[in-house]
Amino acid sequence: MTTVVVGASSGLGRALAEELARASHELLLVASDPRDLSAIAADLGLRHAAKVHTLALDLAATADPGARVLAALAELPAPSALLLPVGQSRVDDDGSLGAAATGQLLAINLHAPITIVQALLPALLEARGVVVGFGSVAAVRGRSRNMVYAAAKRGLQGFFESLRHRHSGQGLRVQFHRLGFLRSNLTHGMRLPLPAAEPAQVASQVVANLEKASFDRHAPRWWALVAFIIAHLPWFVFRRMDA
């Protein structure tokens, strides 16, 4: 069986690839640059004797990413797990982005994950497999930063809710991790109001949960309290929040 990781070249995705290789999964790794993917594949092969395949694909410039992933799987064992730690945010996402940049953010954070899930769904249902999505604390409540990103992540959360509703009882496990801050290049140099988790630590929890039933939860778990507070802050307080 193949485990597909979309957004595997850095941060959480790379940590997931490592964790899955250690657990002897055969992998298909997806990201945009073949140089990153081949380096990761070689390393996982040498350190963990893992079978690793790669697909270099710019998700912001591909009309049907799902079809491309499906085609790459044609020669491989059927997929039983799909993990989507793909994402992008930008500092200038403050409502002033042009159409092209907005389209790219939506493509990477929403359109690509949805189309890939849809393309792989029949095989995942057949395998009674698992699909794992990643949301963000940014989506808890819309703010003046990360406007398109937060909207996309909230959209993705909605899609995963629907997926779970549609397929509950059919053997497909639908897992959604609403992530707090991670120590990756997405947050490098930012002044964060709360501590950032190490991708390796989150990855090991995600992989440990793969066999569990469907869920939608915060990771690390204590972010649930933060999200609750943000969601319930009175407007006059929330309005002044900067971070």
Partner: peptide, 8 residues
């Protein structure tokens, strides 16, 4: 800078 991809 902490480059983690070749393009970086």
């Amino acid at each position: 800078q902490r480059p983690d991809r070749y393009r970086l």
